[in-house]
């Protein structure tokens, strides 16, 4: 099952500069495992203690997975996954 994953600039060091890679999995969690198997270290940048990082956004077909079941969000062939680091900060 091929799913296109769009990689943000800051994580392209893990994908040899590729802006998009293919991966597989029935859920986002499985997809991330699959990414890790070919792009060593990328998982650490996406997950923290087994949860999606607070300041990394993951979208499946334009929906933020926070609203669709998190890492258990189901995937099927032809879906598009976008990873975008949050743009955030502040004096706090």
């Amino acid at each position: 099952m091929a799913i296109e994953v769009r990689i943000p600039t800051i994580l392209r060091t893990y994908t040899g500069g590729e802006r998009a890679v293919e991966a597989k999995g029935d859920t986002v969690a499985e997809l991330i495992d699959d990414l890790e198997s070919r792009h060593d270290g990328i998982q650490e940048r996406l997950l923290e203690n087994g949860e999606a990082r607070r300041f990394v956004n993951i979208y499946v077909n334009d929906e933020d997975i926070r609203f669709t079941g998190g890492l258990q969000t189901a995937l099927s062939d032809g879906d598009t996954v976008v990873i975008l680091p949050a743009v955030a900060g502040g004096a706090r």
């Binding site: 956004n57 979208y59 933020d64 926070r66 955030a88 502040g90 004096a91 706090r92």
Partner: peptide, 9 residues
């Protein structure tokens, strides 16, 4: 917030 900013996802 006066001390934090974040773009809506």
């Amino acid at each position: 917030s006066p001390t934090f900013y974040e773009f809506d996802s």
